[in-house]
Design a protein around this nucleic acid. Structure first.
Lengths: 191, 191
DNA sequence: GACGTGGGCATACCGAGTATGCATACTCCG
DNA sequence: CGGAGTATGCATACTCGGTATGCCCACGTC
C-alpha cells in the first residue's frame, strides 16, 4: 500500500510521468528503499483504473504520459496524511518470527542466535551513523529516514538483550527441558 | 522469505501436513501475523520443487499429505538460525516514507501528521500492554513477540518526538514556509 | 558533414513470489 | 439435514526485480 500512496503524494506536487516519479521517490527516501521502475507503471495503471489519477492531456510527441491527481485522488492523499498508519497492517517481522520459532523448536541454541543477531545489528548501526555524519544537514527528509532506521536498530538491540535475559531465566527455571523430540505431539490429529 | 523459513523450522520438529503447519505457526506467534492457509500449500509446493522438503511416504487415506525435511532442508534451517537477519531485506517502512514525503510536499502540515501518528501509536501501545498482562507467563514465544512490538512502538514514539523537534527547528530557520491549510492549496495544477 | 557509439530517459513486459479469498470435500455432531 | 472444524487446491491480484525496446543527445572519428 505504501507505493500507491507514495506516488499519489508525489503527484500532489503537480503532473509527472513515471520515470520522474521514481526519481523523486528515491530522492525523498535517499534511495533507502529504491523503487523498481517497472512497478511504477503497473501501479499507475491501477491508480488510473481506480479513478485516482488521470492522464494529463496529450500523450506527448515523445511518447511520455504525464499523470495528474483527480479529485478523488486529492481526497485520498489528504486522508492518508490525516490518519495514522495502522498497526494492524504491519508486515511480518522476520526477526521476531525467527526468535519465536527458535525458542519453541527443540535442539536450537537460542542464546547463540540472539548473539549472532546482535553483532549483525550493531554492524548495521555503525554503518548508519557513518552515513548520518556524511549527509546530515542538507536533506531533511533523507535525514529523518536515516534516524528512523537508527531508532529501530537501537530498539532491536534492546529487545535482543531483553530476550537473552528472559530465555536464560526460563532455562534456569526448568533445566530438564534440554532436548525433546517432538515427533508425536501434534495438536489434535484427527482421524 | 520469512514464510519459507518459518515452515522449514516447524518441520524441524517432525513431519507435518499443511493445516498443522499453519496452526503451529499461529500458535508460536500468538496469531499476531496469522498465516494464510492457501499460502502454506503453495509454499510447500515450492519447497518440494526446490528439494528442501519431501512428501513423507503415503498420501494418506484421507488425502492428507505429510511433509518432512530433506538433508538440504535441515542444512537450510541450521543456516537460517546461524546467520543474522539482513538489514538490507528490511521491508519498506510506511511511516518513514509518509513522513519523508510529508516534509517534501508543499501544503502538508507535518506537525499535525506527527501528532496524529503519535496518538495512534500510543493507543496501540496501551493495547499491547493490556495483552501482555493477560498472557504473560505461560507462553514464552508469544510473550517475546509481544515485547518486540512494544519495543518497536516505543522507538516509534521517540522517533516521532525527534521528528517534531527537527521539523520545528527547520521551520523556525526559514519561517516564510509557514503553514498552508491543506484543503485548497493543491500545488501547481497545471493545465 | 556523415556516421555510429554510448549513455541517460522513458515505457513496457515477463516470471517468480506474496497475499487473500473462495470452492470443495469429508467428518463429526446435534 | 445443516453447521462447525479439518484439509487441500485454485483463481486472482499485487509486489518485485530484471530486462527488452525505443528514443534522443553528446561525443568522437573519418
Amino acid at each position: 500500500m505504501s507505493i500507491r500512496h507514495g506516488l499519489l503524494a508525489l503527484l500532489e506536487r503537480g503532473p509527472r510521468h513515471g520515470y520522474q516519479l521514481r526519481a523523486e521517490f528515491d530522492a525523498a527516501t535517499g534511495a533507502t528503499w529504491p523503487l523498481n521502475v517497472g512497478q511504477v507503471y503497473s501501479t499507475l495503471d491501477r491508480l488510473e483504473r481506480d479513478g485516482l489519477v488521470a492522464q494529463d492531456g496529450d500523450p506527448d510527441p515523445d511518447g511520455r504520459i504525464a499523470y495528474r491527481l483527480t479529485d478523488t485522488g486529492h481526497a485520498e492523499v489528504r486522508g492518508w496524511f490525516a490518519s495514522p498508519v495502522s498497526p494492524k497492517g504491519a508486515p511480518r517481522d522476520e526477526l521476531a518470527i525467527k526468535l519465536a520459532l527458535a525458542v519453541t523448536t527443540p535442539g536450537v541454541d537460542v542464546l547463540s542466535v540472539v548473539q549472532t543477531q546482535r553483532t549483525g545489528t550493531m554492524t548495521a548501526l555503525q554503518e548508519l551513523t557513518r552515513l548520518k555524519t556524511r549527509a546530515a544537514g542538507d536533506d531533511l527528509a533523507w535525514s529523518l529516514v536515516l534516524d528512523s532506521l537508527v531508532f529501530r536498530a537501537e530498539a532491536e538491540i534492546r529487545w535482543l538483550d531483553h530476550c537473552e535475559a528472559r530465555v536464560a531465566r526460563a532455562a534456569a527455571a526448568r533445566p530438564q527441558n534440554a532436548v525433546v523430540p517432538v515427533s508425536t505431539t501434534g495438536p489434535a490429529v484427527r482421524r
